[in-house]
Amino acid sequence: MRLAVREAMLGFKRAPVLSALSITTIAFSLFAFGLFSLVALNIRNTLRAVESRVEIRAFLAENAEAEAIAAAMGDIGGFKEVARVEYVTPEQALERAKREMGEFKDVFEAGFLPGSLDIRLRDGFRDPTTVKRVADRVRTYAFVDDVRFGEEWVQKLYSIRNIATAAGIILGLAFAAVAIIVIGATIRMAVMARSREISIMRLVGATDGFIQRPFLIEGFVKGVLGGALALGLTWLASSLISRYFIRTEFFDARLAFLGLLGGAVIGVVGSAVSVGRQIRRVL
């Protein structure tokens, strides 16, 4: 182990430029990943806050009969997606409107507002498709005039989140692939530089595992450094966004650790893929 660590450190000294390049590409890979996850994370948080308020409001026709409404409430309350159904009478609707828009109180004095059924959905049933499905079912009641829900912008947030996630994954993977190629090239050079040593190691009975270890340690260290660099970059980006655009939330410790782990995985996998092949070439 002692020897392996020393050899790993020597690897950095031997090829500083390539090592730096490996670390940077790993960092870019995770940065791309991190940046877009950050976007996705913040959108998710927003959505969560919004979602808990997602309501479907079914406006009732003026002539809707109390019995029919009561029966519908029973029906709707029984949907598996629905948490609660509340009947808002025209009077209550007016009250609420006045309360919410105090300055325009007078506008409502004479006016009429339709009564409505306000439907709250359960956790896990607040995504756009489900909301729409429930809304469509509610719409089928004859005495329901119109159904409103925060359709469009919820949908938009969702698709932004999906795009951010996809972009993060694609860019992250692309950079990870580049990182693995660069690491492979580094190892190829390192193995060639040490081919004499490695062939002697083999000759006196060192196992492949032993010979590979320093390369894997080197990959691990590069990966963790790359991960740390990526975290730094992401943090910087996040605080800039918070400062100039909107308040964003940074990764918690668990996600940050996952980033370092991701770096380590890229580093070790990249090294392992290449080193086995290279070592067999030497002998």
Partner: peptide
Amino acid sequence: ISLLRRKLGVVFQDFRLL
């Protein structure tokens, strides 16, 4: 093969020292 080589020694004309 690695384990076998621990049980034998090999020397060459060109020494192969580091």
